[in-house]
Simulated assay, not measured.
Amino acid sequence: MPNSNKEATKGVVAMTIACLIWGFSPLYYKVLSHIPPLEILAHRTIWSFVIFAFVLFVQNRLPTLLKLFSSLKSVAVVAVAALMISGNWFAFIFSIQNGHAVEAALGYYIFPLVAVLLGKLLFGETLSKVQWSAVAMASVAVSLLTYGLGVAPWISLFVAASFGFYGVVKKRIDAGPVVSVTGEVALLVPIALGVLFMVHSRGDGHFGTAAWENSMLIFSGILTALPLMLFSYATQRNRLSTVGLLQYINPTAQFFCAVAIFGEPFGFWHALAFGLIWLGLALYSGSSLAQDRASRKNAVAL
């Protein structure tokens, strides 16, 4: 038992570090605001592939990666996942660079509730009354924000929906997180190289112009790969309910960056919407913890 507790603690530390990296990554993308989001996304794709492929090579797991491309159906599923995650990455980078970091944070707060709703609609998963209430609160929050600002929070909705559908597609990929993401970025690499070729052929490319820019663009690969590997490490050592609660560190840190560091506006309608989302997440998390305790008691009883 002591050893098990020690491993769980390591998992919590790993998950916390991963969420802090994700949460404070807006600071990195803000520094690169002079570089177009699509160019940054291309570099993020290429350099993360290099890192993931190297890790799999060292672990002698490259044959596992090749299995993802063993059939057209498998390639198609991985391609859809790649489309979802690249769209999510682009929206996030765009929002940070264009003063919409608050919306991005809201999107990642909404995501767990979107995932619950997708689970119900697509997989027939049952929802408790409390969980339905949490989903309803998210809907009301988005409606109020749309009314108050006069425009729907499209970035928030896209971030939440793209990440939610990404999770749906990932359930159909029979591979671990590192292997599957390596496959996804592998399919995106040719597109990324094409983007960079066009950008540099026009003389607008930023890679190779300054050492610090080169380093920052290469670092985008580390910024992508490291937290995902930490996430994988944590999920192997902790209950999903624990991992789920710790994930709220990510949008909370993003929210802090947006309001406290970037000085983005946060008015009455934002406060009302965020308040409802936070209340909904509290209810949802409490319900999930209760279900987790109940299932563990049943397992012990059996």
Score class of each variant (00 low, 15 high):
P2T: 14
S4Q: 14
N5R: 15
K6M: 12
E7D: 15
G11K: 05
G11P: 09
V12A: 15
A14M: 10
A18H: 08
L20M: 14
I21F: 05
I21G: 04
I21T: 06
L27S: 07
Y28F: 15
Y29R: 02
L32N: 08
P37S: 13
L38T: 13
L38P: 03
H43M: 02
H43Y: 06
R44I: 04
I46P: 00
I46A: 00
A53K: 05
V55M: 05
L56W: 08
Q59Y: 04
N60R: 15
N60G: 11
R61F: 06
L66W: 15
K67M: 12
L68T: 13
F69A: 13
F69T: 13
S71Y: 04
V75E: 10
V77P: 03
A82W: 05
L83P: 07
M84V: 06
N88I: 01
W89K: 04
W89E: 09
F92L: 13
S95P: 00
S95E: 00
S95N: 02
Q97T: 03
N98H: 15
N98W: 01
H100V: 00
A101K: 00
A101P: 01
V102Q: 00
E103Q: 02
G107K: 01
Y109D: 07
L113W: 02
V114W: 02
A115Q: 07
A115H: 02
L122T: 10
L122C: 10
G124R: 14
T126S: 12
L127T: 12
L127P: 07
K129F: 12
V130I: 15
Q131L: 11
W132A: 06
A134H: 05
A136P: 07
A138D: 01
Y147F: 15
L149V: 05
V151T: 13
P153Q: 01
S156M: 01
F158V: 04
A161F: 04
F163G: 05
F163T: 05
F163H: 10
V168P: 01
V168I: 13
V169L: 04
K170I: 00
K170T: 02
I173Q: 06
A175M: 11
V181N: 15
T182C: 12
T182V: 04
E184W: 01
E184R: 01
E184N: 05
L187W: 02
V189G: 09
A192M: 08
M198L: 15
H200F: 04
G203F: 07
G205I: 10
F207E: 09
A210K: 11
A210T: 12
N214G: 10
M216C: 08
L226D: 08
L228C: 07
F231E: 14
S232E: 14
A234M: 07
T235M: 13
N238R: 03
V243Y: 05
G244Q: 10
G244S: 06
L246E: 07
L246G: 07
Q247C: 02
I249T: 12
N250G: 03
A258R: 11
V259N: 05
E264W: 02
P265D: 09
P265A: 09
G267Y: 03
F268M: 14
F268S: 10
L272M: 13
L276Q: 08
L276Y: 02
L279M: 14
L283T: 11
Y284L: 09
S288A: 14
Q291D: 14
D292M: 04
R293Q: 11
R293V: 08
A299Q: 13
V300H: 12
V300F: 10
L302W: 06
L302Y: 12
